[in-house]
Amino acid sequence: MDPEWIIRIILFGIVHWILAGFLLNDIASRQRVFGRRKAPWVIVIIIIPCFGSILYLLFHPQIFHPDDNQEEH
């Protein structure tokens, strides 16, 4: 395999797992998630690299407003 492709895959993987780490931590601490069940979101975040995380962020924008949503956690 072309070394450039290896760098691309590694970089994409790093970004994916850092994002996934933050969001899985958020799922674990959140009482309610969109659609009520947490398991599908965990699968989406892990299985679909980066775009699963972006999808989760789109449905849970309150992650960026911790002051307004402290009761959620």
Binding site: I18, L19, L57, I63, P66
Partner: peptide
């Protein structure tokens, strides 16, 4: 947390 997530996005 928000700054890191949006930087990654």
């Amino acid at each position: 947390k928000g700054a890191i997530i949006i930087t990654l996005v």
